[in-house]
Simulated scan of single mutants.
Amino acid sequence: MAFTAMHAERGRLDASRDDLGCGWAWAAVHRARPRVPLTCPECGHGVHAKLSPARMRFFAHDAGAPQCTLAGESMEHHLLKLQLAGEIRAAGWLAELEVRAPDGTWRADVMASSPNGARRIAWEAQLSAITEDEIRARTERYAAAGIGVCWVASRPRRWLELPDQSPRAPVSSHHGRRAPSAGLRRRRRHQHGRDYAGRRSGSGPPRR
């Protein structure tokens, strides 16, 4: 399961956006005949458009797919990514799901870009176990690309208190629009019955 797919001519498709991010309606790819050829941006295997019982749009891998990190993410992880993208867009910023570095050194769950494209913040829904060294290494890779990062967890984690490692993420308004961090950097977010703790680079330790 993934929220993004690649098309040879249209480029990157995002199931969380009304026009799929490429000017197409969902009907253009969902149950379309002849079938629209799409591939997974992570593993390159074929994917097809699907709807969950709750009408959530996504792309599913075709049969015989190799092991893919996008397909292995939990439903809680997917839902949190959607919530983050929605909050970022509500703040007036661009939000892209499952954005991969050109050289493959990082892949952001959600990449937030300021209205003028000058600033980027990667939002990571880190619900599985991870070491402090891994957090530092991944944060440093974002920093090398000039990208801030916010780590979001489902419960208090020791690494939420780590010193900042990447560029300061914006918190002030820009052209009358608030930065996504203005709403999302709060210590707790409540979604689907769960509380989420956030750690944003450049913000200092989260307030208790």
Rank of each mutant, 00 (worst) to 15 (best):
E140R: 12
S128K: 01
I121E: 05
V171D: 14
G64H: 00
A95P: 10
S74K: 07
K81L: 07
R100C: 12
A169F: 00
L127W: 13
T139H: 07
I88N: 02
R157W: 07
A153T: 15
L162E: 10
L84D: 05
L162A: 06
R157H: 10
R168I: 12
P156A: 11
A60N: 08
E96D: 15
Q67T: 13
A125F: 09
W151L: 05
V110Y: 06
A65K: 05
Q67D: 13
T105G: 00
L79W: 13
W106G: 02
E124G: 07
S166Y: 09
R178G: 02
P102R: 12
L79F: 10
H174G: 11
A153G: 14
A112W: 03
A153S: 15
Q165T: 09
Q165K: 11
I135W: 05
W123E: 00
C68I: 01
I147Y: 05
A143T: 12
D164F: 04
G146P: 12
S113M: 11
D103N: 14
A129F: 08
G64E: 04
A125Q: 06
E76F: 03
C150Q: 09
Q126Y: 03
T131Y: 00
I147M: 05
R138E: 10
P66G: 10
T139R: 03
R178K: 13
I121R: 00
S74Q: 02
T105P: 00
Y142M: 08
S173M: 12
L79S: 04
E98F: 03
N116I: 01
V99H: 11
E87D: 09
S114A: 08
G146V: 10
G64V: 03
R138A: 07
A179Q: 04
R178F: 14
A143P: 08
A143R: 03
G92I: 02
P102A: 15
G183T: 11
R157V: 07
S172A: 15
D62V: 06
A118D: 03
A95C: 06
D164N: 14
C150P: 03
A182Y: 15
A129W: 10
E134R: 09
S74N: 06
I88K: 02
H175I: 01
A179I: 06
V171R: 15
S114H: 01
A137N: 12
A112R: 01
L97W: 02
G86P: 01
G117H: 02
I130D: 09
A91Y: 08
E161I: 01
A108I: 06
I147Q: 06
P102Y: 03
E132C: 10
G146W: 04
A125E: 08
W159L: 06
A153C: 15
R158K: 13
P167R: 08
A169E: 13
V149K: 03
R136D: 13
P163W: 14
V99C: 14
R89L: 04
A145K: 03
R141Y: 00
P66A: 11
A118I: 00
A144M: 01
W159A: 03
P167D: 09
W159T: 05
S74L: 09
R155D: 15
G176P: 11
T131P: 04
A143F: 10
G72Q: 14
A112F: 03
G176M: 02
S128V: 08
